[in-house]
Design a protein around this nucleic acid. Structure first.
Length: 431
RNA sequence: UCCUCGGUAGCUCAAUGGUAGAGCGGUCGGCUGUUAACCGAUUGGUUGUUGGUUCGAGUCCAGCCCGAGGAGCCA
């Protein structure tokens, strides 16, 4: 075996004999000439076998190997315009590691149900490879940006004693004889961490047992939630736009091959630069009325409204100061108009809707107690949370950014179930 | 939970109430530059399920199961 290399770096090995350990993506049989498309996780390369150039055993392996068999292929790297990707491997030897049986996923279109039933194999498809590589890049960009801007990672618990927000349906489990719930947000714990460490974030899964059946909902999804002491609504928006712009730049910088596979219009990503437009809820109602999607004051946006607002601008748009009645109990009150909350959502263009929800939190003890009562939440469950307002309460803000929605937007994929390796959707927990 | 649509070969889909088919995949054969290669042959079925109407049901009716699209909720 020659030096083992990865396809992602194959351009560094032109005219050298190398080995690639991978899997057979596809084979085109031309008789005494075989084209093998080999992938190794970092990319795909065409390997070419001529019968007269090979030992009989190696030729036989090249002629027999089945789709998705694992193999080690050795040959000379050539630059060739006829090859997809510009490089090909002139095979000198081929060893089959495991001969795959008839592979379920043919190289043609399939239905969603079938692909989801075979998600463990579908991950190998070029489109899914590309989306999940973008996901990894998005997550890396988020963590690097926050780490580089003095945010401290403080993870929140998954098992919780009560609802964080009291709105969505929770997954119930049992905790040594007591009821417990899977976390729907790290938000409240973040606020405790914020008073200990200043600027913090948690990054983890969230669970919502809503029977949602739309392209922008998952039962289990990942969320990054920064929380910042002594930061007001305006400061919160500044952090959000810097973070989102950085994500787009990192995807553009590191995921060109992936975006090409996904046929993503990169000009849409290049447009994602700060500052983002800021409109109030009241401004948004005017835009909606003009666009023929009128909404009564006090109503929250539905999917069509978010789409109209997102498409009204060429970059993400902040909508701030929603009526207090359509936001969570912990949002701060607008001192100018107490009917409004100091909340802000970030809506993405192209119909991807709400990417971020957040805003300034209520830091006044009396207001928070009143809100908990208004929302008919159990006061005792929030005793520790109210303590945060008794001992050194400060104005503070935070937000939650949905990883899957962001990845779907970056990739231009229609449904967020493709942006997580093993999606949990309503009625599906296999594989 | 509500509305709409669907379930036929491993997959994607056809089939006036009257003999269940095609393409892809698989298998065999052919081809020295293929790009989801192509050409020929071949393999492949309890039509989601239960009951009903009918001389006869993949097709019509009812219930149930499963899935998809959307709504509400939100990241």
């Amino acid at each position: 075996m020659a030096e083992q290399v990865t396809i992602g770096r194959i351009g560094e090995y032109v005219d050298q004999v190398v080995s690639i350990k991978g899997w057979l993506y596809n084979r085109r049989d031309k008789g005494r000439l075989q084209f093998l498309l080999v992938r190794d996780g970092t990319g795909t390369i065409q390997a070419v076998a001529f019968k007269r150039d090979l030992e009989p055993a190696a030729w036989e392996a090249a002629a027999q190997v089945t789709q998705e068999s694992s193999l080690v292929v050795t040959g000379i790297v050539r630059a060739d315009d006829r090859a997809p990707g510009g490089y090909e491997l002139g095979i000198t030897d081929l060893e089959i590691v495991q001969m795959a049986g008839e592979y379920p996923i043919a190289l043609k279109s399939h239905g969603v149900d079938f692909l989801m039933e075979n998600r463990h194999l579908w991950l190998r498809a070029p489109s899914q490879w590309a989306v999940l590589r973008v996901r990894a890049t998005v997550i890396r960009a988020v963590r690097n940006w926050l780490d580089d801007h003095d945010f401290m990672l403080v993870d929140a618990p998954i098992l919780t004693p009560a609802a964080c927000e009291g709105t969505t349906t929770l997954f119930e489990t049992e905790y040594f004889g007591e009821k417990a719930y899977l976390s729907q947000s790290g938000q409240l714990y973040n606020e405790a961490a914020m008073e200990a460490f200043g600027k913090v974030y948690c990054f983890g899964p969230a669970f919502r047992a809503e029977k949602s059946k739309t392209r922008r909902h998952l039962i289990e999804f990942w969320m990054v939630e920064p929380e910042m002491a002594y930061v007001d609504l305006e400061g919160c928006m500044e952090v959000e736009e810097q973070l989102v712009a950085h994500i787009a730049q990192e995807v553009l910088a590191h995921c060109r091959p992936e975006l090409e596979i996904l046929e993503r219009d990169v000009s849409k990503l290049e447009a994602i630069t700060a500052p983002f437009p800021r409109i109030s809820y009241d401004d948004a109602l005017k835009i909606l009325a003009e666009a023929g999607e009128p909404l009564d004051w006090g109503e929250d946006f539905g999917a069509p409204h978010e789409t109209v607002l997102g498409n009204h601008f060429d970059r993400p748009v902040f909508v701030h100061r929603y009526p207090a009645q359509c936001k969570a109990f912990y949002m701060a009150e607008d001192p100018v108009d107490p009917k409004l909350s100091l909340s802000v959502d970030l809506l993405a263009p192209e119909g991807y809707g709400e990417i971020i929800g957040g805003g300034q939190r209520a830091h006044d003890l009396a207001l928070l107690e009143r809100r908990i009562a208004e929302h008919k939440l159990p006061q005792e469950a929030f005793a520790w949370y109210l303590d945060l307002r008794r001992y050194g309460s400060v104005p503070h803000s935070g937000f939650g950014l949905g990883i899957e929605r962001t990845v779907a937007w970056m990739c231009g994929v229609h449904h967020i179930r493709e942006t997580i390796p093993f999606p949990r959707t309503m009625g599906r927990i296999y594989p």
